Amino acid sequence: MFVTTKLDVTVVHATPLIAAGLAASLDAECQVTLMSEFDHDRLLGPQAPAVVISDYPSGLSLMQYHRSMPWLRLRVPRCLIVAESTRCWQVRQALEHGVQGVVGADCSLQELRRAVHSVRQGQRFLCEAASASMAESLVQESLTPREMDVLKLLGEGMDNKTISTRLRIALGTVKTHVKAVLEKLDASSRTQAVATALQRGLIGDEHRHHAAPMRQPVSAAC
């Protein structure tokens, strides 16, 4: 007689309703544990679950903790993030931190189940929305790492002189980078550049509140 062992999954999501929905959706084929408080030792210890399903901040926190503890390197957590947003910058950051899978909170049940089993097998999984977001970013003219640095500081409301000081580069170099950023984002002002970057997912929401006050045209920026 064959006994089928259910996949051990722990759900630790900041939104209780989403956490409960995930548990209910996977209950038929997984042994689901709901964790109300984030416990790194429980999630990474000898009795760690096969798959951890979390929200975006918790998933990144888990992977950062794992990387900071050398003795945990042999036990790589299988982490699947269920995120409210699947914009490019979030997906890219999650993958760079070692997260195995990203799905949107509005993904289908079938997609969720595929994601869980793919992550369990050590495979990367992106839902259709996340894949489309990453694909779109690849066809757009990419910014260099330094241009990305400048763009983020533009989003924080900094002028050229302040950016020059922060990045320790010449003022003329800053102006060159700003001009390149505007051209690549097809923007006529800093405000539009930041707004476009937010829309494309190149920078995060922490820059949203800084975008509105800036209305310098291209000529003033350069």
Rank of each mutant, 00 (worst) to 15 (best):
C107Q: 02
F38G: 01
C30R: 07
P145V: 08
P145K: 11
M69E: 13
E128V: 13
S36A: 11
L143W: 02
Y56E: 08
S131E: 13
P70N: 05
C107L: 06
V76K: 11
S54A: 04
R124P: 04
L34W: 07
L112I: 00
W71N: 12
T144I: 03
H66D: 07
T144G: 04
R113G: 00
V139Y: 07
D27F: 06
A24P: 04
V99M: 06
R42H: 12
L26H: 01
Y65F: 15
S118H: 06
R78F: 12
A23G: 09
D55Y: 09
W71L: 15
S108I: 01
A132P: 15
L143V: 01
P77S: 11
Q93L: 15
L34D: 07
V99W: 02
C30W: 04
R78C: 12
P46D: 09
A129V: 11
H117P: 03
S68N: 10
Y65K: 12
S133I: 12
D27W: 10
T144C: 08
R67F: 11
S25H: 07
L62Y: 02
Q31A: 14
G104I: 10
P70G: 05
Q90Y: 13
S108V: 01
H66W: 09
C88G: 10
C30N: 05
R124A: 09
Q90N: 12
A132H: 15
V116I: 05
C79N: 02
G98I: 03
E37D: 08
E84R: 10
C79H: 07
S68I: 12
A94N: 05
W89V: 15
H117W: 02
G101I: 00
C30S: 07
R73H: 11
V99S: 02
S54V: 03
L143H: 04
P77I: 08
V52T: 10
T86K: 07
A48Q: 03
C30H: 04
Q100H: 09
R73A: 05
G98P: 03
V103T: 03
L109N: 10
F125N: 00
L126F: 08
R73C: 06
P46A: 08
Q121R: 05
A115P: 01
E96N: 13
L62Q: 00
V102C: 03
S61E: 10
V76R: 11
H117I: 09
P70S: 04
H97I: 10
V99N: 02
L44K: 06
M63T: 01
R114Y: 00
S58R: 05
D41M: 13
D106L: 06
P57N: 00
H117F: 10
R42W: 14
